[in-house]
Design a protein around this nucleic acid. Structure first.
Lengths: 343, 343
DNA sequence: TTTGAAATTGCAATCGATTGCGTGAAATAT
DNA sequence: ATATTTCACGCAATCGATTGCAATTTCAAA
């Protein structure tokens, strides 16, 4: 299994009594080689089971045709969809993907980024982890001349390409929907506010209140409730208030919303009549709970596509000044059983 | 953004008036360098924001510290869990992962594998796609001296390292459970039989019938029902038989089982009293349907861990003869509402 | 002070592919 | 038949890091 000598262009050259230059040119389909020699070279390459050494090629060319992706968790629906979306596009262009997960750990994120810089990737796509708000490592990416694209969870202060959701609008629509459905006391389960996405979702929540001229009730805003467990915990607290809410917007995720639903079911509170529930992210399970959960679809695969297309568009574009470009994708409110009062 | 000259060991060497050799040695923490020079070198490297060029390093060393993974779909729970499991282990060892998805397309799978060979990865981990049963490309991996580890969906005839589930046993237990629960006419939704995993699951199904001395009813076996839609379709057919089944084992996936459940609900057939349902894979949604679905947990993350550990164990092991090693992980039957007749 | 071993450092080749430049040969034009 | 392109291919440097071997320095023992 060890030390198998792989055939190189030199082996091919030697066999045919020519130079490696010609072999290289032939295999790159250069027109500086005679058609017949080219055919011959390609044929022998095939016979010898030649595989180009991408390392050598990339080293020489100073590019890697590789894109690095850093996301908090690979096995989380939203992120694996984004990756799939990126892959769809990059694969066709002959680019490879190197995937790293930061485990929501800022230090690991820094390490991942450094590894990718070492690998000389052509672009780094990142969705920042929830802890830490020091972005020196991202600045570093730019300093190394590597394209940086932030997706979904972005460090706003950094001027880079970004592909985001219009979180404010989505939240606004979700809460408006609740208000229009007649819910009066709408609680918010919010995520870590150092992540802009969660800040924006809160902003949308507040905006809806203002638009409908409804006063905000501070005690109905629960911090840091972004897992199923924390969502459940927050819900228990909310429902034991003297004036409990009649709807809960789990702005962090459907997992959180699922926690809400569980607690409601356990306490015998009827959804949606006594309690409306709205989640975020359109996880696959949200349509099969009972009742199914109203949520927001982020078009995650499409976001991935967009990221990849943005990259190819930018490298095609030889401007020295790359203007920071932000692509905002409008999410869609998906209304389901958990908020259909008069369904 | 373009053409940023990155600092190399030569830059560091020049600045300090020494050779690149020493710089390289220092940065690799060799003890062939004076402690003080080493410190100085490391300090300057840091100041100049030096990042090793992994391409050059790997080219020289003839290894890449990279593992390639080819799976049918990134955004499918089982696979993204396997990847996460692999990543957990490889990350610690300083290895990177290159991920490709074959989209269940045999040709794309071949291309993916070739790309990875070009990249000089140290190991390829693959779960073969559902179409095609020509495995020349995998043999090719071995011929190039690259470690090959097959996971879950394996080409049995190839003698490589394998990490699999004991599908026969799992199926056997699932069907036994149904039989013991008093179900008499147990249908099987089976997957493409060119994939050994599905063959094995069928085998376990048949084995249980034999063990309990129950005759197999051919008309209750439905081919190719491995998506939610196909599962639903198969179920409609089954339930419209003169003698419909009283239980369905969706051996392909929980998605398929979900299709069964949907149809049952739509037809007003009560689960589990009139119809028992058992799925496969323990997808996250399977515990939140109503009733929750009995299924089989494959310990997917752990399978990923196992794959990675197997790799490191094998490369540590300098035997020229690497014996094909197969690690079979015993899945666990998770009994839930959909089969609890007297619950 | 001399000698020998050990510790440092430098030299130069190497990994495999790419590419600018140059040269002879063939093809075309004059 | 000669001049001028064009074509095909070779030469050699290059990308950046590593490493065997040689050269030099250091230091201690004799």
């Amino acid at each position: 299994m060890k030390k198998v000598k792989r055939t190189t262009i030199y082996d091919i050259a030697e066999k045919l009594g020519i130079t490696a230059s010609s072999v290289s040119r032939a295999l790159n389909n250069s027109n500086q080689v005679n058609e017949k020699t080219k055919e011959l070279i390609i044929k022998t390459a095939d016979e010898l089971n030649y595989k180009r050494n991408t390392l050598a090629s990339n080293l020489r060319k100073g590019q890697s045709k590789t894109i690095g992706v850093v996301i908090p968790r690979i096995n989380q629906n939203f992120f694996s969809n984004v990756i799939a979306g990126i892959e769809e596009v990059t694969y066709q262009k002959g680019y490879s993907l190197i995937i790293c997960q930061s485990d929501e750990d800022h230090d690991k994120e820094i390490q991942c980024v450094n590894t990718l810089i070492n690998q000389h990737v052509d672009c780094i796509v990142i969705s920042v982890s929830a802890d830490g708000n020091d972005y020196q490592h991202l600045q570093n990416v730019l300093d190394h001349g590597i394209q940086l694209i932030q997706v979904d969870r972005v460090a706003e202060e950094l001027e880079t390409l970004k592909v985001i959701n219009d979180n404010v609008q989505a939240s606004y629509e979700a809460v408006s929907h609740l208000i229009e459905g007649g819910y009066k006391r709408i609680a918010l389960l919010e995520g870590p506010q150092n992540l802009s996405i969660f800040k924006q979702r809160k902003e949308g929540y507040l905006k809806a209140f203002k638009a409908y001229n409804v006063p905000v009730i501070e005690e109905l805003i629960v911090e840091n409730a972004w897992t199923k467990e924390l969502g459940a915990e927050g819900t228990r607290k909310l429902l034991s208030l003297p004036h409990p809410p009649d709807a809960i917007f789990a702005s962090t995720s459907d997992f959180s919303a699922l926690g809400v639903l569980d607690v409601a079911n356990a306490m015998g509170i009827k959804v949606p009549s006594q309690l409306g529930i709205c989640g975020y992210a359109n996880e696959s399970f949200s349509e099969i709970t009972s009742p199914s959960i109203t949520t927001i679809d982020q078009f995650s695969v499409y976001m991935g596509n967009t990221v990849a297309n943005l990259f190819f568009q930018e490298i095609g574009n030889n401007d020295t000044i790359t203007k920071p470009k932000i692509i905002s994708i409008k999410p869609e409110l998906i209304i389901r059983g958990s908020t259909k009062r008069n369904g």
